[in-house]
Design a protein around this nucleic acid. Structure first.
Lengths: 220, 220
DNA sequence: AGACGTAAATATACACTGTATGTTTGTCAA
DNA sequence: TTGACAAACATACAGTGTATATTTACGTCT
């Protein structure tokens, strides 16, 4: 009889399958390449079938974002706070690079799926357990996340590899007349010449923030 | 004869008028309420007329973003760097609050209108003139901007006024079972009870960043 | 003053989008 | 075997950005 077991789920589709395929599509073609029709096509199904498993595109996006957050290495609450924050930030960056479409919906919608709640709880918990007050923990999380997001945006918008980056900077340079924008011109020139290493710069900034947090905490 | 004076501009529309009306529309109804047809209607004109003054919606958004950035109090290059960065950050926050739609396109598109170039040049210039190296100045600007953006997103997504904020937190609280998310629950509870003052928290974080930058600069 | 060239406004049309509404169909429990 | 019911489908609608072709009205030059 299988009394109160799983719902019948008779045919092919599942909410999870829909979300997973939507993420694959967005990974491959970007968010603007994700339409309900194309998604249905990729699943071998008519557009309206999706609405049996997802309330609408808005909700679908929420679910996608939550699935992305679920991939983040959240802190272990009793772990060393600094190591945990570091690990989380690096993981977050990696996840946001893997799903380049995710940064914008992640920050711009005020959704709170299970994964987001879990991660936030773990992050605050780790900090509070380590001795931060709640307001401090809140602010610390904001500072770290802002760094991660800000960096993610740069890396999503610009080419990642050093050559491509230098090429973009070089291509950009002629648009900045040195007479009108001397400092910007010089900055772009230095970037175009320098070796750019995204992850190093990311970790450098992150460690500065962590230093600041540590000093702040110890000063109490 | 009015030799090489201004272009004829025979009828009603201008690029500036189009952009200005688009901003008014976005201010009033949000970005998703801004369509070429509605914009044309608001200007008393046919949709396709817009394309004589704007290359397309993408370019229109770029122009809107640039117009927003133009409202920021950019640093004076020879001014005290700390005061200038502070003034710029506060101005930026104010501008982004005035045009609540602007934050997302500002960070997510890699456009560079004249105002953006000008502001970036002035910011880097002020820092470099004050003694920062170019890489330092670049990082400093990123740190400040990330703070401003991160904060702007929070303030755009949540209600601004203290009562509304507390109400939202209270409404949100029941969705966070204390058993599953104890730390998040407690954090939300404290927020729901506390007086929330956006500008104070914003300035507090900003000053922490400026402190860090100052220490960093002096340590060289 | 009158004709012309040209840029701006218009009209029409196309390929899309998300989704409301109503119908069919396949599967499981009785 | 028979309902019941949820999942897949078909159709349709209002809205999107914009390509293309056409009309209109103005500044310039004769």
């Amino acid at each position: 009889m299988s009394p109160a077991s799983k719902p019948p789920q008779r045919r092919t589709l599942t909410t999870d399958k829909v979300v997973a395929e939507a993420m694959r599509l967005a990974d491959a073609e970007g968010l603007e390449g994700l339409s309900m029709r194309r998604l249905a096509g990729a699943l071998g199904v008519t557009p309206m079938s999706l609405y049996n498993h997802v309330a609408g595109k808005e909700e679908l996006l929420d679910a996608m974002v939550d699935a992305v957050v679920a991939q983040i290495d959240s802190p272990e609450i009793d772990g060393d706070w600094r190591a945990m924050m570091r690990r989380r930030a690096l993981s977050m960056r990696e996840v946001l690079m893997r799903h380049r479409w995710a940064s914008i919906p992640l920050i711009s919608r005020m959704t709170s799926g299970a994964a987001i709640l879990r991660d936030t709880n773990a992050t605050l918990g780790c900090l509070v357990t380590a001795g931060f007050t709640y307001p401090q923990a809140d602010w610390a999380r904001n500072a770290i996340d802002n760094h991660v997001y800000g960096y993610a945006f740069q890396e999503v918008n610009y080419p990642v590899d050093p050559e491509g980056y230098k090429a973009a900077a070089s291509r950009f340079l002629p648009r900045i007349p040195a007479s009108e924008y001397p400092f910007l011109h010089e900055a772009a020139r230095q970037i175009a010449e320098a070796r750019y290493d995204g992850i190093t710069r990311f970790e450098f900034g992150l460690d500065l923030i962590l230093d600041g947090l540590e000093a702040w905490k110890d000063a109490e």
